[in-house]
Amino acid sequence: NQASVVANQLIPISTALTLVMMRSEVVTPVGIPAEDIPRLVSMTVNRAVPLGTTLMPDMVKGYA
């Protein structure tokens, strides 16, 4: 089972991601792979991401 990136807090729309905002967790459905966390830092989300939500590729500008 692959770990995915999960929001560690509410991430408001257009917020630049930082390490403290994300954690890795094995979830269903599978989202962005946890090993991509370093790549996600400073990318922005294009929607509000509630606490505990799995980050999907279409939620992060420039990721997909």
Results as ranks from 00 to 15, higher is better:
L19C: 07
P12L: 07
I37M: 13
S14C: 13
P50T: 09
P33L: 11
V26C: 10
V49M: 04
P29K: 06
G31W: 03
V30A: 10
V49F: 02
V30H: 14
M21P: 01
I11E: 00
L40R: 03
Q2A: 13
V6K: 02
I37V: 05
S4V: 01
D58I: 09
V20D: 14
T44A: 10
L19I: 08
A16F: 08
V26P: 11
V20W: 12
L17V: 02
V26M: 11
I13V: 12
M21N: 12
V45Q: 02
R23N: 09
L17Q: 00
V26F: 12
V41H: 00
S42P: 00
S14V: 05
A48I: 13
D36Q: 12
T15Y: 08
S24V: 12
P38Y: 08
A7V: 06
V45P: 01
P50G: 11
T53F: 11
S4G: 04
A16D: 06
T28W: 07
E25Q: 10
V6Q: 01
I13M: 13
M59D: 13
M43L: 15
V6N: 01
I32D: 00
S24G: 09
A64V: 13
M22P: 00
T18Q: 09
P33T: 08
P12M: 07
M59S: 07
T53L: 09
G31S: 01
T53E: 07
V49P: 03
N1L: 15
P38C: 15
G31M: 02
V20G: 14
V45W: 00
A16R: 11
M21W: 03
T15M: 07
L51Q: 15
S42C: 15
G62K: 06
L10Y: 15
R39C: 13
A48R: 14
Y63Q: 04
S4Y: 03
K61G: 10
N1C: 06
N46Q: 08
T54D: 02
V30F: 12
T28I: 08
Q2L: 14
A3Q: 09
V27W: 03
P33K: 09
P50W: 09
T15P: 02
V60Y: 01
V41C: 06
I37K: 05
N1D: 15
T53P: 01
P57S: 09
T44P: 07
V27L: 06
V49S: 01
T44F: 12
Q2G: 15
V27E: 00
V49L: 09
K61W: 09
M21T: 03
I13A: 13
L10V: 09
A64I: 14
T28L: 08
T53R: 08
P57M: 07
A16G: 07
N8K: 09
T54V: 14
S4I: 02
S4F: 03
M56H: 06
A48D: 15
S24H: 12
G52W: 04
N8C: 05
E25F: 06
T54K: 04
R39K: 14
R23F: 04
M59N: 06
D58C: 13
M43N: 05
I11D: 02
L19R: 13
R23A: 07
I11W: 02
V41G: 00
T44E: 09
V6C: 05
A34C: 06
T53M: 10
N46I: 08
A34L: 03
I37N: 00
A34N: 07
M43D: 02
G62M: 07
A34F: 06
P12I: 04
P57F: 05
L17H: 00
E35L: 12
V26S: 10
L17M: 07
P38W: 09
A64R: 12
V5D: 03
A16K: 14
Q9V: 13
M56Q: 13
L51T: 14
N8G: 07
Q9T: 15
N1G: 10
V20R: 10
N46Y: 09
R39H: 08
M22K: 00
R39Q: 12
I11R: 00
N8R: 09
Y63D: 03
E25S: 09
L40N: 00
I32A: 00
D58M: 11
V49Q: 01
M56P: 01
A34G: 08
I11F: 03
V45K: 00
V27I: 07
D58F: 08
V60P: 01
P12N: 11
D58Y: 09
T18F: 03
A64N: 14
A48F: 10
M59E: 01
V6M: 04
L40P: 00
G62D: 14
M59W: 12
P33Y: 12
G52I: 03
A7P: 01
V49D: 01
M22I: 09
